[in-house]
Deep mutational scan, measured.
Amino acid sequence: MAAGGDHGSPDSYRSPLASRYASPEMCFVFSDRYKFRTWRQLWLWLAEAEQTLGLPITDEQIQEMKSNLENIDFKMAAEEEKRLRHDVMAHVHTFGHCCPKAAGIIHLGATSCYVGDNTDLIILRNALDLLLPKLARVISRLADFAKERASLPTLGFTHFQPAQLTTVGKRCCLWIQDLCMDLQNLKRVRDDLRFRGVKGTTGTQASFLQLFEGDDHKVEQLDKMVTEKAGFKRAFIITGQTYTRKVDIEVLSVLASLGASVHKICTDIRLLANLKEMEEPFEKQQIGSSAMPYKRNPMRSERCCSLARHLMTLVMDPLQTASVQWFERTLDDSANRRICLAEAFLTADTILNTLQNISEGLVVYPKVIERRIRQELPFMATENIIMAMVKAGGSRQDCHEKIRVLSQQAASVVKQEGGDNDLIERIQVDAYFSPIHSQLDHLLDPSSFTGRASQQVQRFLEEEVYPLLKPYESVMKVKAELCL
Rank of each mutant, 00 (worst) to 15 (best):
H107G: 02
A102V: 12
V254K: 08
I386G: 06
Q397L: 06
E283L: 10
P378A: 01
F208A: 09
L255Y: 01
R33D: 04
Q184Y: 07
N118G: 11
V405E: 15
V457Q: 02
I57K: 05
Q416N: 08
R137L: 12
A260T: 11
E328W: 00
F28I: 05
N71A: 06
L108K: 03
A392L: 07
F160I: 09
Q61C: 11
D73Y: 04
H400N: 03
P293T: 00
C304K: 00
T382S: 11
K187R: 14
L128I: 04
E376G: 02
G156Y: 01
R329C: 03
E80Y: 13
H7N: 13
D32R: 06
S474T: 15
N336C: 09
K284M: 08
P24V: 11
L443Q: 04
M387Y: 12
L443Y: 03
C99Q: 01
K246Y: 00
W39R: 03
S23L: 09
S140C: 15
K246N: 03
S323K: 01
T330Q: 00
D445G: 08
A136L: 14
N384H: 09
L346H: 15
H7F: 12
D349C: 10
P281T: 01
A49G: 12
E343D: 08
L484F: 14
G200A: 15
L423W: 06
P153C: 11
A110T: 11
R270L: 04
T201K: 08
A103C: 14
E64L: 07
N297W: 04
K233E: 07
A47P: 07
L186S: 12
D191G: 07
L131R: 02
Y34E: 13
T154W: 13
E50V: 08
S306Q: 00
T167E: 01
F236M: 08
Q61T: 07
A22N: 09
C27S: 03
H93G: 10
P162I: 06
S448P: 08
I265H: 12
T154A: 04
F232Q: 02
S301I: 13
R303P: 00
T154L: 09
E370C: 09
K101E: 14
Y432H: 14
M76C: 13
M312E: 05
D430A: 15
D349P: 01
Q161S: 05
K147Y: 13
A3C: 14
Q375G: 04
G451R: 02
G4F: 15
T330K: 01
H86E: 07
I265A: 12
Q439N: 15
A146L: 00
Y243W: 09
E79L: 09
Q210S: 12
N353C: 12
L108W: 10
N118C: 06
A453Y: 05
L44V: 08
K470L: 14
K187N: 08
A381T: 15
I106H: 01
A3R: 11
L186M: 12
Q161A: 10
P16T: 09
S261N: 01
L55C: 13
L482Y: 13
G418N: 00
M26R: 05
R85Y: 12
C98L: 09
E279K: 02
G169I: 01
T242V: 08
T382H: 05
L423S: 06
Y365C: 12
F460S: 04
C304M: 07
D59T: 14
V88S: 10
L179G: 03
T204V: 11
L311Q: 15
K477Y: 15
K295M: 06
E462P: 03
N336F: 01
H7T: 10
P293F: 05
S454H: 09
